[in-house]
Amino acid sequence: MRAVFITMLLLVAVVFFADAQKSEGEITYERVFHWTRVYSRLSYLSQEEKDRLKLTWGNDDESKQEMLLVFNDKQSYYTYPKVETLSEGGYSWTNLEFKSFRDYENGKMTDVIAMLGKTYIIEDSLQTPNWKVMNKIKEVAGYMCMMAVTEDTVKGQKITAWFADNIPVSGGPQLYGGLPGMILELDVNDGDIVTTAKEVKFRPVTAEELAMPKKMKGKKIDTQKYNELMSTHIRDSIKAHRNPFWSIPY
């Protein structure tokens, strides 16, 4: 009887340890952007102009970018994995500032985003989208994921997320989270931009990896002011027949 009891305790410990291991690590995402799809949604373009774009570029409108999420069950940090350089033709550039910190334990968020010619620091309580979990599943990066949908009412975008409930962290890429598991794929407007996990690596994460810099340069605003800036810029750009998403995140 004692042997059976000890075996049961060991099994419980193994399961607990396995779950704990899945609560911290890093995820490498690939973000695929189709700019002709974005252009085709601009209301000021004629159908002829939209058709010409598709005919000219076809499937050669794809831009790819790697992103990295480091996380544990209390915090996460999402940004570029490194400074990207383009050597072909002698050109090079650095990415615009984009850092996203989440403090799940204290319900706080901090985003550092370069947009509209400035750098903004958005500080607020954690904002949870109004997700609707759907009765669909698919595999992403070796994990069975459930589908959830919401809407970005400021940008007029349909958002589809695929989350893994066996990675028990309510995080994800591109400022999104709030689901009962890690988001491993995020689809904006049925394929305009798709951010997909390519590698999930569980490992111990240090406090330094998740810590915000002590000094951050930028104008501090809250979520309401950020949304107002987005809404005004999109409205004014469309009115002036300019693509608003050249200077703000899509």
Score class of each variant (00 low, 15 high):
9 L>S: 12
209 E>R: 07
60 D>M: 12
237 S>W: 03
97 E>M: 04
205 V>S: 08
95 N>M: 09
198 K>Q: 14
143 Y>A: 01
68 L>D: 05
75 Q>N: 10
41 R>P: 01
162 W>S: 05
169 V>L: 02
153 T>K: 15
20 A>R: 14
176 Y>H: 10
105 E>F: 01
236 D>L: 09
133 V>W: 01
56 T>G: 00
161 A>M: 10
29 Y>K: 06
77 Y>N: 06
160 T>N: 05
161 A>G: 09
145 C>A: 12
196 T>K: 12
234 I>F: 08
67 M>R: 14
126 L>F: 04
221 I>T: 11
206 T>E: 02
41 R>N: 15
198 K>H: 03
135 N>Q: 15
215 K>E: 13
182 M>Q: 12
145 C>G: 07
201 K>V: 10
108 K>I: 01
66 E>N: 09
77 Y>E: 00
148 A>K: 07
169 V>Y: 02
250 Y>G: 02
5 F>Y: 07
157 Q>R: 15
50 K>G: 06
182 M>H: 08
245 F>W: 13
45 L>Q: 09
186 L>R: 01
211 A>M: 13
123 E>S: 14
250 Y>W: 09
179 L>W: 03
95 N>K: 10
70 V>N: 04
43 S>C: 03
30 E>R: 12
19 D>N: 11
115 M>Q: 13
162 W>D: 06
224 Q>H: 01
189 N>T: 05
219 K>I: 13
54 K>M: 10
154 V>I: 15
201 K>W: 01
157 Q>W: 02
56 T>S: 02
65 Q>P: 00
15 V>E: 04
184 L>N: 08
68 L>R: 15
147 M>I: 00
73 D>Q: 11
182 M>A: 13
110 T>Y: 07
95 N>V: 05
243 N>M: 03
194 V>S: 14
150 T>M: 02
126 L>I: 07
160 T>F: 01
163 F>M: 08
239 K>M: 07
144 M>H: 04
137 I>E: 15
45 L>C: 11
104 Y>A: 08
5 F>N: 09
201 K>Q: 08
181 G>C: 12
153 T>R: 11
200 V>I: 06
17 F>V: 10
43 S>Y: 04
105 E>L: 10
170 S>R: 12
4 V>H: 09
196 T>A: 08
76 S>R: 00
100 S>E: 10
149 V>T: 15
177 G>V: 03
6 I>A: 11
225 K>E: 15
82 K>S: 12
215 K>A: 10
14 V>S: 09
101 F>P: 01
103 D>Y: 06
214 K>R: 09
32 V>F: 00
18 A>C: 03
7 T>D: 06
151 E>D: 13
11 L>D: 04
50 K>T: 02
70 V>Q: 13
90 G>R: 08
208 E>Q: 14
24 E>W: 11
80 Y>P: 06
149 V>Y: 04
123 E>Q: 13
117 G>R: 02
193 I>S: 11
42 L>R: 10
